[in-house]
Amino acid sequence: MKNSPVLSIVVFSVLRLAAFLVPFTLMMMLPAFAGLWWLAALFAALIGLSISVLFLRRPLADATTAMANRRAARTAAAEKPRSEREIEDEIEDAANDEAQQG
């Protein structure tokens, strides 16, 4: 059974947050980073980015595929087929424009 699109996006987001929050929490427990929370946040962001690039390729691919599929479905649903009357009106307008020009 295939995962739902929303589930893959949520899984990637949670894993990405964990890749930042775990190193940040561990660094904040160290006495060296007690007063330098911004430095701990910077290092945690770099560590989280590295973990994401190295280990979260598949969840990222699943999330981006799910988002692309949702967008394609939304645009396909938004494009309604033209009626026969609209097509005839366009042909008539083109013929009138051509007759006026030449």
Rank of each mutant, 00 (worst) to 15 (best):
E98C: 00
A73G: 07
E98T: 10
L60H: 08
F33C: 04
R70H: 07
R85F: 00
A32H: 02
A99Q: 07
S8T: 15
V22C: 03
S8C: 05
A41Y: 01
E79A: 11
R71W: 12
S52V: 00
I91S: 04
L49R: 04
T75F: 09
R85N: 06
F33Y: 12
R82Q: 06
G102N: 11
A63Y: 03
M27Q: 03
R74D: 11
P5I: 00
D93R: 14
L54R: 11
E84I: 03
G35L: 04
S8A: 04
V22F: 02
R74E: 14
W38P: 01
M27L: 15
P81R: 12
R70P: 00
L21S: 12
A45V: 03
K2N: 07
A34N: 03
R85E: 14
P59W: 01
D89S: 07
S8Y: 01
I87N: 01
M67K: 05
L17G: 13
A45F: 13
A99N: 13
E88I: 06
P59H: 04
T25D: 08
N69R: 12
A94Y: 08
P5C: 05
S52G: 12
M27W: 06
A76K: 13
A99S: 12
T64W: 09
T25R: 10
N96K: 13
G48C: 03
K80S: 13
N69G: 12
A78R: 14
R57Y: 02
G102W: 07
A78Q: 11
D62G: 01
S8L: 03
P81V: 03
L42G: 05
T64N: 06
M28V: 06
S83M: 05
P59K: 04
P31S: 02
M1S: 11
L49A: 11
I47R: 00
V22R: 05
Q101I: 13
E86Q: 15
E92I: 06
G48I: 09
A44S: 15
E90V: 02
E92D: 15
L7K: 15
L7D: 07
A95D: 09
S13E: 10
Q101D: 14
Q100E: 15
D97R: 15
R57K: 09
A94Q: 10
N3K: 08
A19K: 03
A68K: 12
A77M: 05
F24Q: 01
W38V: 01
K2F: 04
N96S: 12
T65G: 10
D97M: 11
D93K: 14
I87V: 15
P81K: 11
L26G: 04
A78C: 04
L17F: 13
F24D: 02
L30A: 15
E90G: 09
E79I: 06
A63M: 12
I51T: 09
A19S: 12
R85H: 09
R74I: 08
F33L: 03
L46Q: 03
S83I: 02
F55W: 15
Q100V: 12
R82T: 01
K2W: 03
P5Q: 04
D62F: 06
M1R: 06
A73D: 15
R85T: 14
V6S: 08
N96Q: 13
A94V: 12
A73T: 08
P5D: 13
E90M: 10
S83G: 11
L26C: 10
V11P: 01
A32V: 14
M29K: 13
